[in-house]
């Protein structure tokens, strides 16, 4: 038998990452900021999006692609407020780009300012999958414990913002916002941290202005590159 060894040295997800980069670029050209929300199950991603939609009502356009293993319950909670499509993975632990694109096509919305992708509740697998987002955000609710950043370093390292949710429960559970923030920024120094109680709308304003700023930055970069051409 004759053998030949080919040196590759390429990421296993090389082609998926390339596609994700193209998708990111397409959304930037449309002026749509794509936000990928990661968290454990039950941290309040859907409640955060409901509160965001209520805060923006009429002022900014947003749509949601919501991933779950089963049921369309989250989409049902969101559709009275904003266009939303449920993506069911049928058991898979994370969303992939193909599912997200199918969901986006199904929405058939134009002039969208913010596209939120609510990932499957899981802090492990979604951290390894680029969905073409501009911003990756972790939602951590206080009953989960302030040790989550240290336990799930990859998810925190690859994110740009952390939303600490259910802060109205702080008097009842052992959770230190300072400790969680310190651990999270140890892993990712640039991480922006927001404290909110989504059910009551507390802290939503600064979270929303952060998103608006991020979109303005995206538009500015886009404008600059157009001027160069």
């Amino acid at each position: 038998m004759t053998h030949r060894t080919i040196t590759v040295a390429r990421d296993v997800q090389f082609f998926a990452k390339q596609t994700a980069a193209e998708v990111r670029e397409q959304f930037a050209r449309r002026g749509t900021l794509v936000v990928n929300l990661l968290s454990s199950p039950g941290s309040g991603k859907t409640s955060l999006l409901q509160a965001t939609a209520r805060h923006w009502q009429g002022r900014h356009s947003m749509v949601v692609l919501v991933g779950d293993i089963a049921t369309d319950r989250d989409a049902q909670r969101l559709t009275p407020l904003v266009p939303a499509v449920q993506l069911t993975t049928g058991g898979a632990c994370h969303l992939d780009l193909a599912l997200v694109q199918r969901g986006w096509d199904a929405l058939a919305e134009e002039n969208v300012e913010f596209l939120f992708v609510e990932n499957v509740g899981n802090l492990v697998c979604p951290a390894s999958h680029d969905l073409g987002e501009h911003l990756r955000v972790i939602v951590l609710s206080v009953p989960e414990g302030d040790d989550k950043p240290a336990k799930y370093p990859k998810a925190f390292r690859t994110s740009q913002a952390l939303v600490i949710n259910k802060t109205d429960l702080l008097p009842y559970v052992p959770f230190s916002v300072a400790h969680a923030t310190e651990d999270a920024q140890q892993i990712q120094p640039q991480l922006e941290v927001f404290s909110v109680a989504a059910l009551h709308g507390t802290g939503i304003e600064s979270w929303c202005s952060f998103l608006e700023q991020q979109r303005q930055k995206l538009l500015a970069v886009q404008q600059a590159s157009q001027n160069q051409q």
């Binding site: 053998h3 060894t5 080919i6 590759v8 040295a9 990421d11 296993v12 997800q13 390292r157």
Partner: peptide
């Protein structure tokens, strides 16, 4: 921080 494919050894007996 990655899972990378480094090399592949291929049976090229047919080609040879």
């Amino acid at each position: 921080d990655t899972f990378r494919l480094m090399s592949v050894t291929v049976d090229i007996s047919d080609v040879v």
